[in-house]
Design a protein around this nucleic acid. Structure first.
Lengths: 331, 331
DNA sequence: TTGTAAGCGTTATCAT
DNA sequence: ATGATAACGCTTACAA
């Protein structure tokens, strides 16, 4: 059916091996090279990556597995991974797990069975099964969400530190009681971020019970909205809120807008860029959460592993910069 | 290195063929089935999809090639394709072309060489090279952006009709001069959308030159902002703007906000959901642009082709509903 | 430099 | 029902 190197070889009057050599840049006489090129052209020959991968025991595709394509943080991450990987001659395919461990397991299986060169994984659950990948010697780098004790490289940001700084920033602007909306309880990052907030809260609001001002939700917009509603309905409501990721921050802001209490009436600090920067960021303290940088760094680590670096697993923790100053209010 | 069916066969005391049969549900005696299962389990065996694909001449992966992962329309589209494809037992990988024909060509090549089951393509350029795919008999469905004369199924929305309706809606609300911000000149959809607007403009504003009130930009936020700025600076500025996609609409809105002329001061209708619905949609007429539905429909068409439907290429044009009524202004 | 031939790990055919 | 065996399309020793 499809045209193979044998067809090309026949048309060019050479052996299949020679065709393969031309394709891969092994030394071949100029004349035969030309003939092969022409024949390939004429037959519109596309080499089968499947066969090549089978034979060579590996491909040049990197799988990037993320929990939410709709989150700008992960798309930025994707761009970072993509840029770095493409520069190194690899291609990147995205797999969206929708925060569901079952979908994640499926994609990891496919990646293993497909013999991808490597996997960058922003895990949906705490304990993904990496055995299939490991059995095939496929490199894995965990990104954003650490995978403790799974023996893989981890590239992430300093959740607790950044959260503390964002919270601090709100107190620094004169707010006196800063609540926290973090991710769901099972998520490691949610815990770390809450912890970063809690330390600052306790130092500025001694005597107050932090748990009253902490809400755990999914990392989605709807959860942020609900949490904001609850917090503002407290007998002693907070005058500012720290949102532990961009989507919940968006949700909080949405609720504030609905009740006419947008910043600076109620303070708001968010970890990560809002999906809608120019319009929203005005009075919101945005703590940088550099997805692209994370992606580039993760890709770098993965490429190192692919090239055979077999040092013990490393953990890279990037530091988030200080919150951006709010832009001046529009005319 | 990796464990193969031979290892499993040896451990189970059967032939490789039997192992394969167990894996694929061919009739095998219960006892041997059990033994094989146990052996596979014990060895943590993952069958090589590469070998299987090579042997069977096709895989069960569908490639979805989109120009912009950061656009909510395309992520919605992706979800539609994904849901439908997964339900049919396929997996979906996303390839982001970043609106660049060269990246697109690369991913199409990979898809062909990887022998994916099919491709859903939202094209970056007007004339992608589908020969490699065609040579391998891989089904392709064009989505959102038509590929004239390439002999593939097309699933898209009625650009001109929806644009006309969105424009009409603004006039219906009392605005008297509606400008248009569409996509870049090369894009087929940009032309169709401008055309839909133009017809309505000419009937409401006879004697005025439409070209004065038409701006072509990229389909990005920055372009929308710039276009809005230009339009409002006209000697006889429009009192409303129709934005031909969500990102440009976002840009327009951003500029309106910057100069304190958000709707309803200046009317705004947008084709497609804004990235930030709860917060922004208030006074904006949003013409539905159902990405998910489009994705589902495209996947459906593709699955049909994969299953062997070889009718002549079809063109499906879905109709967009009427603009959503603006939500009431917040308290 | 070039050709021959042996795999890579499956599945399908054909016997048994 | 099961086992041997030949593909699938490519790369790579090994020879020439």
């Amino acid at each position: 059916m499809a045209v193979t190197i044998y067809d090309v070889a026949a048309l060019a009057g050479v052996s299949p091996a020679t065709v393969s050599r031309v394709l891969n840049g092994s030394p071949v006489s100029p004349e035969k090279t030309r003939k092969v090129r022409e024949a390939a052209q004429a037959l519109r020959f596309t080499p089968s990556r499947t066969a090549r991968t089978l034979r060579k025991g590996g491909s040049d595709v990197i799988a990037l597995v993320i929990p939410d394509v709709e989150n700008v943080f992960f798309t930025a991450l994707a761009r970072g991974v993509e840029d770095r990987a493409i520069a190194a001659g690899y291609s990147v395919v995205l797999c969206n797990t929708d925060e569901r461990p079952d979908k994640e397991a499926r994609y990891l299986d496919i990646a293993a069975a497909q013999q991808v060169a490597g996997v960058v994984l922003a895990a949906a659950g705490p304990g993904p099964d990496l055995d299939a990948l490991r059995a095939r010697g496929i490199a894995v780098v965990a990104v954003d969400r650490p995978l403790p004790d799974l023996g893989v490289d981890v590239v992430r940001l300093d959740d607790a530190d950044a959260s503390g700084r964002a919270t601090e920033c709100l107190y620094g602007r004169g707010y006196t009681r800063v609540a926290c909306v973090t991710g769901f309880a099972g998520s490691p990052t949610a815990g770390l971020r809450a912890q970063g907030w809690r330390a600052v809260f306790e130092s500025w609001c001694p005597g107050l019970d932090p748990d009253v001002y902490l809400r755990e939700t999914d990392y989605r917009s709807a959860g942020g909205r609900r949490a904001a509603e609850e917090l503002l309905a407290l007998p002693e409501p907070p005058d500012a809120i720290f949102a532990a990721n961009n989507m919940t921050g968006a949700g909080v802001l949405s609720h504030l807008a609905a009740v006419g209490r947008t910043p600076p009436w109620t303070g708001l600090a968010v970890l990560g860029d809002l999906p809608w920067p120019e319009w929203e960021a005005r009075q919101v303290a945005v703590q940088p959460w550099p997805g692209r940088l994370l992606g580039v760094t993760a890709a770098e680590a993965l490429l190192g592993r692919i090239r055979g670096d077999d040092a013990p697993p490393r953990s890279v923790i990037l530091r988030s910069d200080s919150p951006a100053a709010p832009s001046p209010v529009g005319s």
